[in-house]
Design a protein around this nucleic acid. Structure first.
Lengths: 340, 340
DNA sequence: TTGTACGCGTTATCAC
DNA sequence: GTGATAACGCGTACAA
């Protein structure tokens, strides 16, 4: 039996009072007599009245929904960010609408447009690979010009004026490289992706800076640039044959763990012969054998921070002083590096 | 400069026609003259008019939002399900609101109530551990009695009449155990969780059935029950010392991979000395060394199926013939088992 | 061909 | 103390 959702109107009719009286009574307004309030409140409770969110949204022009657009959800880092966002947002009474751009510019645009027509109070997003490659940010510009708050995280752009949350990728790579250098490693390979990714670019910079600071030169032959998210152990194998490094820094977990596999199959021991440090402290790094020393990006904290910035802006509705919060990466030392 | 979102009213005023004329013109109604339509459409395009979703939701009593409540998002299986849901839902013009119950009964209830007041057209969910333990399904009952469609997946209950999507966990475990038996393995250990989980229970059953079908007896000493998601390599190590199996079936990836680590540290070789098969074909299984033969649960397909069932019910609005779709698990053969 | 009126569910203002 | 009215943005049956 379908128990129709009850509205103010139903209650009013049933109790033979006006809609506005019901509304006020349920808000415990002083205007209404104790007696009427009791009757109405009891009735409402009995029928489990709950105000309709949509109607309230229309009236208040506030949905209490946050739109989150991420490139991929089957990716531990984004997943932790979503969790951080959820956590903070829920605590503030907001829901989270998650959309996936699937690394595609077009899907990113479609998702934004879908949500921008009143469904959400603001956006939290990380640019898709397609968007970073294309460098077309008009959809973001439109949204911000409409006055919809936007917080970018991790994969950001300078083209758009809005709040941002990033981690200091240069520092992260620097710390990792420095650790390897302090272990006495001299031939440190870098596994990275093509350069159009803001994050990879910064990680490469940190790696190079650390080498220089320790008086070494950056040699291109120690750098392997793999296509985005493409795992090709043969390429890694060829690379490792050509240079025989004593340490490897990988800009992501996947490259790192496959590099370790290749090394192990070549009969090299990790960390005795080769140390490995990987970016993004995810499941793979944690559960690998040996477990991999990682740069933690603190995704959950990033998510919380982004949600906090967004909700503050939504509720304050001023459009000034855009800030960029920088999260400090930390090294999680595990078994793939030497201990000191 | 804040470019206020434009409404029908603005256009009407600007072009000095009535709101309904504008509305009709934008829908290309035959009632309106070519001339007026052109004027209005041009103006709307210029100012990038888009109807307000909230107003439409209120009018239609349809939000085109789907509420998804899952126990945990940092869990590869759920993540793939969400992706499947997203994919299908987006293609049908629906948005996905994701809420996390964090394995807690209370949070599950709160999330449901938040969304049930008009924010969504239907729910897709998987029960939290807390709910399965408590066996309290009143929140689900209330929602279905209100006529809000609900699809349960993976962790389901017989207490609620609604559409369901599950995988045949008994079969999955049976297939895995059978494969190990056919390899000639005789001492097959089972790593599982406590019994209140519907999925673990079924996996245990499949394991036991296969052993019996092959004329072996189920020995309790070959079964290790670990607390939910608690990784304790010492317990695993003690267990493996006490029985020395020649194969291991794990009801999840994490237990499986840690079991492999422990075995490897004991100097045993996988798969030469011990074969391993694990449930849930996630990142860990795929990228481990050796990679782990897994039971694929086809999360993405499950998500798609759930979304299809939900949207069908939302759009047909009848409340009969609840179905349970059963997804067939398959074995992904990798390096942790012997080849035939 | 265009416009008026009403309803979706709620709240706020003002009148009685 | 209570109720009528308008408004949020849209769509549509009906009237002009």
């Amino acid at each position: 039996m379908l128990k129709q959702k009850i509205t103010l109107k139903h209650i009013a009719k049933e109790l033979d009072v006006s809609i506005s009286t019901v509304s006020k009574a349920l808000k415990n307004s002083e205007e209404i007599s104790r007696d009427t309030k009791d009757r109405i409140q009891a009735f409402a409770k009995l029928y489990n009245y709950k105000p309709n969110n949509i109607a309230i949204s229309l009236k208040n022009k506030r949905t209490k929904n946050i739109g989150v657009i991420i490139p991929d959800i089957v990716h531990h880092f984004f997943t932790t960010v979503v969790r951080g966002i959820e956590k903070y947002a829920n605590a503030q009474g907001y829901n989270v609408i998650v959309c996936l751009s699937d690394e595609s510019f077009d899907k990113e645009v479609i998702n934004m447009e879908m949500l921008a027509n009143g469904s959400i109070d603001g956006f939290i997003m990380s640019l898709s690979a397609g968007t970073e490659k294309k460098k077309d940010f008009n959809h973001l510009k439109e949204v911000t010009e409409q006055g919809i708050p936007l917080v970018l995280f991790d994969r950001v752009t300078n083209e758009i004026r809005c709040d941002k949350v990033v981690i200091d990728d240069i520092l992260g790579a620097y710390l990792a490289t420095e650790k390897l250098l302090k272990e006495g490693r001299k031939k440190i390979a870098l596994l990275t992706t093509e350069d159009f990714f803001s994050v990879s670019k910064n990680r490469n910079l940190g790696y190079e800076k650390a080498l220089r600071d320790f008086g070494l030169v950056v040699e291109e032959k120690y750098i392997l640039r793999l296509p985005f998210m493409d795992i090709d152990e043969d390429k890694i194998s060829d690379f490792l044959n050509s240079i025989v490094p004593d340490a490897v820094l990988s800009v992501n977990e996947i490259f790192g763990i496959h590099c370790m596999r290749v090394l192990q199959r070549k009969g090299l021991k990790v960390p005795e012969d080769v140390s490995i440090i990987g970016f993004t402290d995810g499941l793979l790094a944690r559960h690998a054998n040996p477990s991999i020393t990682s740069i933690a990006q603190h995704g959950e904290k990033m998510g919380e921070t982004a949600a906090r910035m967004l909700i503050e802006r939504v509720e304050r509705e001023d459009e000034s002083n855009y800030r960029t919060e920088i999260i400090q990466p930390t090294i999680i030392t595990r078994e793939s590096t030497l201990n000191f």
